[in-house]
């Protein structure tokens, strides 16, 4: 095991019901790296993320975060480890009953015994980082899509985590706002030295922020390499992804007939 490897996934196999989603996925993310997991819909990237977050138990394989295997961990240990993880979900997942400020404060209130004044200052600090200073009294329903994602990011970094996970930062946003979010991710890594995993299907964003890109397709890792390596790849599926070509999967005539006749 590498000393500076903070995320290590080995032979991860996952099923959804009877269907196999991940077929022996391997992934390594070094300390301070921005790793972008790319793939189309149905590639298994959301499932991979859920396993990285310890929200699901895999069929087999291991997921090591900061040197500890979370698939074999007791709930209490995982609970401690999670203080070192920040997650920004695709839809923000802010608690709608709380204000933006209360949402950002939530991890501090639950995990620390800081006094109110300190918590408030830290909250405003993080909201300033994501350019949402002064919005702490609004409710999530009063924010735009981009603001919700930034507020979710503020909540994810409020405990100064070592690992930051970001699910689809640019989904549903206009190009300008999504570019701003990319800059924000780069800024966070530069200023706080976090290791960041971003799941996305946006090429442009991936090329801009990634140190390494991991391309996932039908539950297999096609390639894990630097931006240049991905650009130069001659693999047909990766080229298709880069050039936005429609997928052309080879059809087995017998299999096709069987599917049609339901036999």
């Amino acid at each position: 095991m590498d000393a500076d490897c903070v995320i290590e996934v080995e032979n991860l196999v996952a099923h959804y019901g009877a269907r196999q989603i991940l077929h022996g996925v391997n992934l390594r993310v070094a300390q301070g790296e921005i790793n972008v997991i790319m793939g189309g819909s149905g590639s298994g990237k959301s499932t991979l993320l859920r396993h990285l977050l310890g929200l699901k138990r895999p069929t087999s394989g291991s997921v090591r975060l900061l040197g500890k295997d979370i698939t074999k961990m007791a709930a209490r240990e995982l609970h401690v480890l999670r203080r070192n993880m920040g997650v920004a979900f695709q839809g923000g997942a802010l608690l709608s009953s709380l204000t933006v400020g209360e949402n950002v404060q939530l991890p501090l209130r639950e995990h620390t015994r800081l006094d109110d004044r300190t918590i408030e200052i830290m909250t405003r600090l993080k909201l300033e980082i994501v350019s949402l200073g002064g919005y702490e009294h609004l409710h999530p329903s009063q924010l735009s899509g981009g603001m919700i994602k930034r507020a979710a990011l503020a909540r994810a970094i409020v405990m100064d985590p070592k690992l930051l996970f970001f699910d689809e930062p640019s989904a549903g946003l206009d190009p300008v706002v999504s570019a701003e979010l990319d800059d924000l991710i780069l800024k966070l890594r530069a200023s706080m030295g976090m290791t960041i995993v971003v799941v996305t299907h946006e090429l442009e964003s991936a090329f801009k922020i990634a140190d390494r890109i991991t391309v996932l397709d039908h539950g297999h890792i096609l390639l894990s390499g630097t931006v240049a390596e991905v650009r130069e790849s001659k693999e047909a599926r990766i080229e298709a992804l880069l050039n936005r070509r429609s997928r052309q999967t080879e059809v087995d005539p017998d299999d096709y007939l069987r599917r049609l006749t339901g036999g």
């Binding site: 977050l53 310890g54 929200l55 999670r82 993880m85 979900f89 997942a93 802010l94 608690l95 909540r155």
Partner: peptide, 17 residues
Amino acid sequence: SMQINQEIDALRVMGIE
């Protein structure tokens, strides 16, 4: 609605049962 908005997942990954 918290479940489908991933708010429950968010609580869990924040270490809040």
